[in-house]
């Protein structure tokens, strides 16, 4: 069976464009949420954000220690499993930083499962906006790092920022819609 280059090109160019989800509202919401107090984009913005973005919010940092085999004792040994396996929940965001780590956020109703991962096995911690989200559970029996279950506070809306720290420094920050 042979196929010509022209046929490959024809097939490629016959693929229709997909209508995208509307990202304008989501991105603008995240921009406003992440930088509502910050100046317009400028070279110093990162430093401004680092100093201000989290200062206004009360942030709880839960240490989530991930050790592959020679594991240290989990800090949240009292945690119970969520009724529905969190890995069946809908993924709302999955972002990563090469060579450092990744954060997956899943949603089930008003609950959010925060699943961190460090490529180098360093200690992980997760922080979130306490004004909008409460911790309701920590799942340790996941075959990997602990998964933090957050619940939306009554009346909370808009966007909530989640931050992943690895080895004591911030690796990434993302905003999720809680509406």
């Amino acid at each position: 069976m042979a196929i010509s280059d022209e046929e490959v090109v024809k097939q490629l160019e016959s693929v229709p464009q997909v209508e995208p989800p509307d990202m304008r509202a989501a991105v603008m919401g995240r921009l406003r949420s992440a930088a509502s107090q910050a100046a317009p984009p400028a070279k110093s913005r990162r430093h401004v954000l680092a100093g201000l973005a989290w200062a206004a919010a009360i942030v709880i940092v839960v240490a989530v220690v991930y050790v592959e085999r020679n594991s240290l004792p989990w800090e949240h040994t009292e945690a119970t499993m969520a009724p529905l396996p969190f890995d069946r929940w809908k993924v709302v965001t999955r972002i990563g930083v090469p060579q450092e780590g990744r954060l997956t956020v899943r949603r089930n109703g008003d609950q959010f499962a925060i699943q961190p991962f460090a490529f180098n096995g360093e200690p992980i911690s997760v922080a979130w906006d306490q004004k909008k989200l409460d911790m309701s559970d920590v799942l340790s029996d996941t075959g990997g790092p602990e998964v933090v279950i957050l619940r939306k506070k009554n009346g909370a809306s808009g966007w909530a920022v989640i931050q992943l720290n690895i080895g004591g420094h911030e690796v990434l920050k993302t905003a999720i819609s809680i509406d």
């Binding site: 509307d22 991105v27 603008m28 317009p40």
Partner: peptide, 23 residues
Amino acid sequence: RCLQGDVDAFGVLIERYQRPVFN
């Protein structure tokens, strides 16, 4: 406009490019 502080101006750019960029 964005660089002058008008964050909403970025929405125009998103709207213009979201379809080809998404694809």
